[in-house]
Amino acid sequence: MVFIGLDIGSVAAKGVLLTGESRHRLLLPTGWSPGETGKNLIEGLLRQSGLRRSDVKRVVATGYGRVALREADRTVTEISCHARGVAAAYPDAGTVIDIGGQDSKVISIGRGGKVLNFAMNDKCAAGTGRFLQVMAAALDMDIGELGEAEDPSQDVTINSMCTVFAESEIVGLLACGISRGGIIAGLHRSVGRRVAAMARRLGVRERVVLSGGVALNRGVYRALQEELRWSVTVADDCLFSGAAGAALLAGEMD
């Protein structure tokens, strides 16, 4: 039987199609119309797998754009989907940390990916991909370049939690002649500190698995490990944990 999981995030839309034997995945920018993007994901996954729409038993959508999808049979929150997706790949996972475009969350999980407890960032963008995106723009860089460009040997601290204030703070640091690499390392530490505090408040259980797009940034990964003082595993296919979880949950529903 064929199931599709769609994770429509604020920046990227991820789709996973599961048949009994194979797994297909597709990544698209979410753009301005989450509904349209979801449709494109399904079509793309079907093309990739050579299947027809009628072969698909169920579609489960997650992510902030989940409600905009007419094609979805059910919607499930990102919390449950990330927990399920990570637990499938790492059965010994106890904590999932997901840093996405506009949310960061820490999920305590038990057997089979059952959600025991969770915490999410507040209304503001501190400790999320959006924070890094705005800072990258201020440094005239692409967000994908940040991880490689940092210089962790420099001890730069970004104090502002607010994205807007942090932006002025780095403008000030640049004016003082602080290097870009040092500032980037400071930004990564800021995200790491914020997320680690949230995780410690919830209670960290081994093993800690990092998912979401920001997990691809080696600097954040390093900073998070340092701040958390736990070893962290970056999920294989970290972008698709939520979508994979949604596809698995689609297969487990009555």
Binding site: Y64, T77, E78, I79, S80, D103, V115, F118, M120, K123
Partner: peptide, 17 residues
């Protein structure tokens, strides 16, 4: 009403739990 969507995700996740 500014944080309705953020509240919704949390409440939905709680109900899923």
């Amino acid at each position: 009403a500014s944080d309705r969507e953020a509240l919704k995700v949390r409440i939905e996740a709680l109900l899923e739990m």
